[in-house]
Amino acid sequence: MLKDVTFGQYYPADSFIHRMDARVKLLLCLLFMVGIFFVTSFAGFAFITVFLITLIASSRIPLRSILKSVKGIIVLLLLTVILNIFFTKTGTLLCKWWIFEIYDGGLYFAAKMFLRLTYLVVGSSVLTLTTTPVDLTHAIESLLKPLKVIKVPVHEIALIMSLTLSLIPGLIDETDRIIRAQKARGANFDTGGLVKRVKAFVPILIPLLVGGFRRAEELANAMNSRCYEGSNKRTQMRIMKLSWRDFVATFIALLFFVTVFVVYGMQSKWATADVGWLYINGVNWLYF
């Protein structure tokens, strides 16, 4: 059952996007996420839709995989839409029933937040679907390198991420095995009240924890035996090289963002209202 969980959801394929440098992809993805907050008009969203469709098509990822990640936040999406529809009180009143009032402003914000959240997820899932977790780790390490100057333990952070990635499959297997073993001893995880259910997890958590310590000790021994002593003078096998793809992609992306910003500039009035609303409403900022 737990084995069905695929981590990182990398979708192996050979595409332009797959072959891009992970650092460039990561940076552009961040830029996209910021950029999407500057899009306020529906024309802007139409523009981004075209952009995303082109992006997905060129990445050779089946639409199914993208929709799957959107499905992951479906509850959040519905909540956002409902909260926006019922709690925004700007524009003209459309209908009223008991204490519920729906304004056209509410529908407008609900639609926009829906698109924004969906596109955020779509954009970032293009990154995670086309980049292996290992590449992402390397990209983060490489991009954070300048922070070494201010004594941020960049190497250690990257190592922790890399170790976590390599331990996760084993941990999932082990959890699965312990659950089965306790089930065989009559453990029941599906019935009873909350307290009972939480208590039912003790026989899983303790063996996992004990196993975790055992693993950690063995791993530490293995690392020490292979001459690990922190980041001093460490070299790396993997060299990340920028190729023409990265420059082309960056160029296209920048062109895209410049357009977005220009459109934003033309509609700055709306945007101020929008940002202001974020603070007033006090609900949606949680998500960002």
């Binding site: 190592l159 390599s166 063995e218 690392m223 096998m237």
Partner: peptide
């Protein structure tokens, strides 16, 4: 040294990067 549990000695999630861990620690040129 090679230890008992094959799952608890892996430091990377790609074979070649795991094997590279030692020489990387030693500062061997790429």
């Amino acid at each position: 040294m090679v230890f008992q549990n094959p799952d608890n000695q892996m430091v990377a999630s790609i074979v070649e990067e795991d094997v590279a861990f030692g020489p990387e620690n030693l500062g061997v040129p790429q």
